[in-house]
Design a protein around this nucleic acid. Structure first.
Lengths: 334, 334
DNA sequence: GTGAAAGCGCTAACAA
DNA sequence: TTGTTAGCGCTTTCAC
């Protein structure tokens, strides 16, 4: 890479003249500007990002810590973050915490050394279980703002972008109840997450409001064979006529299992699941889904962080944005 | 963040003494080292990454340019890259090209300014269609090595990690032929990609080798309704008894469609598809899959790049590694 | 054993 | 209009 120094030497002017010329400074003569720019173009000069970062004490880089990149929702949020960030000239450094507290801490530590100007993250499962928040607080007190999304640590004072998980399952369940479904099961493989708990509560609330109904929850562990678990549950509970799935694969598997057992979907049983549009194509009939607008969540998170980074006046008030889910009716409900 | 300067001032020693002490230099007295380290620990001193990068003229950061983060395979490769990179102390800056040539160029341009030491990338669809490679060559000639994976530009001289696409479909097709399948269709939604073409060729070769058989290819465009396309194809070709799917959703939809039409899988029809383990759980019976070992591909790519970055002696010979696919038999084949 | 000084590439206040 | 200088945070050579 060419440097200002080299250009200056070749042009027989000083480094600062070159610098100013390239930045269209008023101080420099037209003729000089032209000469400088021509040589710069010839050599494809690009200002060294690292030097700029050091000088200006900001990197225009955002650290993103994500629990699981293979999770379609999280990947889509990352996509949203990236799209929004590039608009403002920011880059994204990604760390994957693998749902591990230790790796989450490590990610923060590794990047909190001047590599990034701030963080966007979703809290790892283990972190939520152990309720650890010190590492977040420490990072913030070091002057690096954090924006949390989806799985947030409520006790950390920072900007947040969340989903209306509780309302989403409450409304979805209500809609199945309106279909006169009597035995609606809630299937979850994300019991350990804050959002998983909220989703369960929304479902439970709706069920209990309906006189005489009792909530019924099927919890699946990560290491379980989901297909087997759901199959054996369906076999034991022949009267199931509705499913609310807290995660996409539970919803997909529920439909396929019902069909395998000879049930008609949605005539005999309705299924609603948290899932993306592309997931909904993985079943026939197509899954009625609760959409989280992942990309939008990412964009909002990026905006909040960038806003905080650029507004020097210390805004002390943290904000929490709620990106509402949409219930997209398809063919797996009446 | 504390700097060496601040520590030095507080300790009444020079900056260089502090620096050396923290790096356990032989030159510095034990007592001094102890004092320095204690204060550094107290203030949680971390060497400024940006300053180090500037000084050492390397960032220990890898630029990854990915066509589509929502593609499960590509996301998994990214995961593999990240895992391997952190082992060696490298960070990952991710750009998403969105299958667009322009954005791919932009990503390279944006990061080829000292932000990264090298690139790992998979070529965007538009780039492959237009056969553009100048931007890759330019980047390499600027001293930034590139490692390409999966979708590679053969005419660019650089390290590559690829999959045995041709052999994979050839063998998969052979295995269906051995099941005495007579009418095997190849379904693809990635016709425009180099890997898509290779997969089709492997299938065609195997079919043609079997006397009397003729290849049959169903091409689906991104904007098409995959479910409808496959359904109407199946209705028009009632004799189909085998499917080779070039992408995961085609395989999943093929199974569900067959079942919807009253066919028994795998009794009446066998299905094999490029897909991951988690995809295979999205159908009953589970999909027999061609696995690409995405994480391994990412790890290999990262290793190749890091190796090149660390071996100063200019290794002029570029390498191409092939990570072989595995055919994992499950319940959608005999 | 410790410190001064140069330099990585850049910007900007100040000098000429 | 152009050049000199200092400084961002760090390492490292060379002097003391």
């Amino acid at each position: 890479m060419v440097t200002l120094k080299q250009l200056a030497k070749e042009l027989n002017v000083s480094i600062s003249t070159v610098s100013k010329a390239l930045n269209n400074s008023e101080e420099i003569g037209e003729e000089t500007i032209k000469r400088v720019k021509e040589l710069a173009a010839l050599y494809q000069y690009k200002p060294n990002k690292v030097a700029l970062s050091l000088k200006q004490n900001k990197t225009k880089t955002i650290g993103v810590i994500i629990p699981d990149i293979l999770n379609h929702f999280l990947a889509k949020v990352l996509f949203g973050i990236e799209r929004e960030a590039v608009k403002y000239g920011y880059n994204i450094i990604t760390c994957i915490s693998n749902e591990s507290l230790e790796q989450e801490k490590e990610g923060l530590r590794l990047l909190a050394n001047g590599s990034v100007d701030g963080f966007i993250l979703s809290v790892a499962e283990e972190t939520q279980e152990k309720k650890e928040i010190e590492h977040f607080k420490r990072t913030i007190s070091q002057g690096l703002p954090i924006v949390m999304f989806d799985r947030v640590a409520h006790d950390v004072l920072c900007d947040k972008v969340i989903v209306d998980d509780y309302d989403a399952t409450y409304n979805a369940t209500k809609s199945l109840l309106q279909e006169k479904r009597k035995n609606i099961v809630f299937i979850t493989s994300i019991d350990g997450l804050s959002v998983g708990k909220l989703r369960e509560r929304g479902y439970t609330k709706a069920i209990l409001e309906n006189n005489g109904n009792q909530p019924m929850v099927l919890k699946i562990k990560k290491k379980d064979d989901q297909q087997k678990k759901i199959m054996s549950f369906f076999k034991k509970n022949k009267n199931i006529d509705g499913v609310i799935a807290a995660d996409s694969s539970s919803g997909i598997i529920a439909i396929n299992t019902a069909i395998k057992l000879g049930l008609k979907v949605p005539k005999d049983i309705s299924v609603i699941g948290f899932a993306s549009k592309s997931d909904s194509y993985h079943t026939i009939p197509q899954l009625t889904t609760i959409r989280q607008h992942a990309k939008e969540i990412g964009a909002q998170a990026a905006q909040m962080l960038i806003n905080r980074l650029q507004n020097k006046p210390v805004e002390e008030d943290v904000k929490t944005k709620i990106v509402k889910t949409s219930l997209i009716k398809s063919k797996s409900t009446l």
